[in-house]
Design a protein around this nucleic acid. Structure first.
Length: 292
DNA sequence: GGCCAGGCCATCG
DNA sequence: CGATGGCATGGC
């Protein structure tokens, strides 16, 4: 990865297949704040990062080379060749071609598994803006203060040990509603090693999914999201209402079962199903494809 | 005020 | 099994 160091900033020129707006707004992550167009603050891995983009020049503000190399190259998946992925997907069919062309700057972030697990447990039956607020409140209450930016105090996402301090009632007080016992069960099973998050990346994909679904409140869709966004398992295809809508619109009739759609996608997109899903999801949501 | 939000669980036939 | 409510809360 070629980059320049300029005072406290790290600058990458001519990076293709990278659009910071697409990456952050496509629904895969929740801890980011838009300052203005292509100017964001991100909280991840106990760090605060301000990132700006002007066409193909990307600036990582106030970070050292060590963090850049050890955290942010992986986080932004900078070593993956998205041009090839996009070409393969575009050649599959015209629908995917359109989604990939429209949302050409998406990258799948490599996020922390634990944070992804709790985030997507929270995500069920919630709008993205509210998911963001709940995760923020949980971090403020149980995470660690990590610094200030624009006079806003930022807190890391709580560790397993930190979040395990919360009782079910504590969680209800944070307005997570019926998800409180789900989060509590995730804490319990992960801290007792009944569910092992560190092995998800290497397990057989069906086993990995079942491992996550041992947790109450984790079904097929949440498990797929954790595997894709938090465990680098790109062969999954999280099938939610938006993906169902766009798939019905392009490939099926209305009222097709999620199971049928899911099986088709895993077969049709293969090892790139996760990437395909994210282009389709963001495209569908942004243009309200298939929404009645 | 009703409806829906990146679903899942419990309960029923 | 497959289908159907119910679920906490907030925004529109």
């Amino acid at each position: 990865m070629e980059y320049m160091v300029d005072s406290n900033n790290i600058i990458i020129n001519r990076l293709c297949d990278f659009d910071i707006e697409h990456i952050l707004e496509c629904g895969q992550c929740f801890r980011f704040y838009k300052k203005s167009d292509k100017d964001y603050i991100i909280v991840a891995y106990d760090k605060i990062l301000r990132i700006t983009q002007d066409k193909d020049e990307i600036v990582f503000h106030n970070i050292d080379e060590e963090d850049f190399n050890s955290i942010w190259i992986k986080y932004f998946d900078l070593e993956r060749d998205y041009t090839s992925i996009k070409k393969i997907l575009s050649d599959k069919d015209e629908h995917l071609h359109r989604a990939v062309t429209e949302k050409d700057g998406i990258r799948i972030l490599q996020q922390d598994t634990w944070e992804t697990l709790i985030s997507f447990i929270i995500s069920q039956n919630k709008s993205i803006s509210h998911i963001k607020k709940l995760i923020e409140d949980i971090s403020k209450r149980y995470g660690t203060y990590i610094g200030e930016e624009d006079e806003i105090k930022f807190y890391s996402f709580p560790t397993i040990e930190q979040l395990s301090q919360a009782t079910e009632q504590d969680l209800r007080d944070l307005k997570v509603g019926f998800r409180a016992p789900y989060i509590a069960d995730a804490c319990r099973k992960v801290i007792n090693d009944e569910v092992n998050l560190s092995r998800l990346a290497d397990m057989n994909i069906a086993d990995a999914k079942n491992e996550l679904m041992k947790i109450k409140g984790v079904g097929p869709k949440v498990a797929d999201c954790v595997l894709l966004f938090g465990a680098k398992r790109y062969e999954v295809f999280p099938t939610d209402v938006w993906v169902k809508r766009i798939m019905e619109h392009y490939y099926f009739e209305n009222d097709t079962k999620i199971k049928v759609i899911h099986e088709f996608a895993v077969e049709h997109y293969g090892t790139l199903a996760g990437f395909a899903q994210q282009y389709l999801f963001y495209y569908a949501r942004d243009f309200k494809i298939g929404k009645k």
